[in-house]
Amino acid sequence: MHRKTTQRIARVALALCLVTASAACSNIEPWVKPYERDRLADPIMFLDHDPVSTSYMYHVFESREGARGAEGVVGGGCGCN
């Protein structure tokens, strides 16, 4: 079941790539203008506000769980036994 969900998520990512590519061919105008992005520029909207903390938490989870990847770059080593 999980495998099917992973494939589903991958397909959505693919669909977005193709939509983006075809949009480029039609010379699309940005639908959110630069002057309309004040909310997106607010620090509470940053996807990764504190990279040093984020990579630490990736390390905490990756050391104790089987899954890895699609979240960020984690350094080598373990320290988890």
């Binding site: 991958a10 909310r39 996807l47 899954a67």
Partner: peptide, 11 residues
Amino acid sequence: SSAASISGRYY
């Protein structure tokens, strides 16, 4: 391994 994710943030 393969991993895929979708994330979002809404104001």
